[in-house]
Structures are given as structure tokens and as C-alpha cells.
Amino acid sequence: MRQVCLLCLLLIGCSSNFPEGRTVEDDLGRTVVLPPTIERIATLAPSVTELAFAAGAGSKIVGVTTFDDYPPAVDSLPKYGMIPTDFEAIVALDPELVLASEQVNSPKEADIFSSIGIPVYFVAVNTLPDVPRAIRTLGDLLGTSEAATRRAIELEDSLAQLAVLTADLSERPRTLFLINDVTLYAFGQGSYIHDMIDLAGGYSITQTLTTRAPVLTDEFVLSSGPDVIVGSFGPQYDVTKLISHHSTWDIVPAVVSGRIYGLYPDLYLRPGPRLVSGAWTLAQVLHPDAVINP
């Protein structure tokens, strides 16, 4: 990855010498040929829209998916369907680059854009440090590296600040992060969610599961006995619903002590810049006394 950044810096440093464009490698290892300057971009997932805005390239976005709702500036942009991808609508917006998410989009879609002559760049966020890294990379690609660097440093500082607050905590609650309440979808090995829980001063009990998106059994929850259960159910979620769906959990420590919380889903399920505030919120939930002000 560092090579890519170096390459980008190098290329940007002397971009006027490369009128025919630049060749970079994206997060999937694909080779992408970019035009010398990029003024019109389209995004294929809400998380990459947020990353592009954070990189200071929000004004270059010409269209977003129908699932996009953040930042508020996207409301005035043209929208297109994403399941399945509405190629016609995107091509009609005449983008010079399409940004895709490794989590959501498939390289097959990219082939269709490539055949029309529109390059597609895939962004992957699998760890928390990937967020500022992706913002810097996008800044380099889109010619907004100054703003991107500023934002990336802000986010890194915020993460470092949180790390200081949670580093010496004696208690690290065993935490279960759920995506659904009835069928127990969760995050397995290799997800950024474990970084977030770790940074927030907890221990994620699903981080060693080999499946990337496991459906947990009630047995697993009972026998691993989480101290805290958090779910991307939204802050309005009625936690008694979770308990009534899983009546055997009455002896699970989190249920006994009432430490079940619904969290705002976009701060956890969208691998973008808002993961950082998600980590802060999580830290406040896990350590209400130690972590007070974001």
C-alpha cells in the first residue's frame, strides 16, 4: 500500500508531465488507469461517498446511490439504484472515475464500466487505520491531498486520543456486536468492528470466528457469556425485544446487568470516516465513567 501512496505522490508531484494519465493499483490489487485530472466522480456505495467527502472531494461527486444519505450534501445529487447497479444512469452522468467499495461491489461491475472506458477504483476498509489511509489515498487520486491529509490527521488524532483514554482500563468487558436481533448475524474474523471494540476498551467475542459474516447460535452467546451486548439496532431499539427473542439468555451477564444497547447503525455498518465517532460512542457505552467527552 505504501508503494501505491508513494507512487501517487510521485505522480502528483509531476502530473503536468503525464498528460496521458496515470496508472495506479487499487485496494483489490487491480491496475487502474486514471485521467490526468478528475473532476467528475460517481460512487457505488454510501461508505465510499463518505470517504470521498472526507477526502475533500465532495464537490466532484456527480451522483450517488439511492442508499446514500450522508453527508447532507448528497440529498441534492442525482441518485441511481445499486442492487442491481443502474449502469445507464451512471454513464449518463459522465463520470471520469467510479469509486467502489470492496465490501459491497463486485469486480464484475467494474468490467462493465471499463468496457465503456470509465475507470473503477475499489476502496477496502478492513481495519480502523484503513479509514485515514483510504482518505489520504483518495485525496491523492482526486487531487485534494491537502484537505484529505488534514481530515486524516484529525481522525488519527481522535483515535489516538481515545486510545489513551482506554489504554489503562483494568476492566475490558467481553462485548458482543450484533447486526440483527432475531437471526444473529455478527462480524467474524478480519473485520474493523473488532478494532473499534478493542479501541473502545472492550474485547470482541466474535473476533476469532473463522467465517466473515457468521450467524451465531444461542449456544455460542450463552457459553461465551458477553458482559455487554451492542447491536446496530438504532438508539430507539427496545432491548426487551432481544431478550424475548432469546429467552435462554436470562443468565448471560449482559442481560443480568442490563447492559444491552442499540447503536446508530451507520456509525458501525458503513466502513467510512464515521467509524471514528462510532468507536467513541462505543467507548462511552463500555466505560461510561472513564470516557466522557468525544
Partner: peptide, 10 residues
């Protein structure tokens, strides 16, 4: 189905 994925299910 229970045994194939540890901790998870199919």
C-alpha cells in the same frame, strides 16, 4: 449444519 462452522450455523 451445526458442526460445520464453529460458533456459527448454516
Amino acid at each position: 449444519a451445526r458442526a460445520l462452522l464453529p460458533g456459527a450455523q448454516l
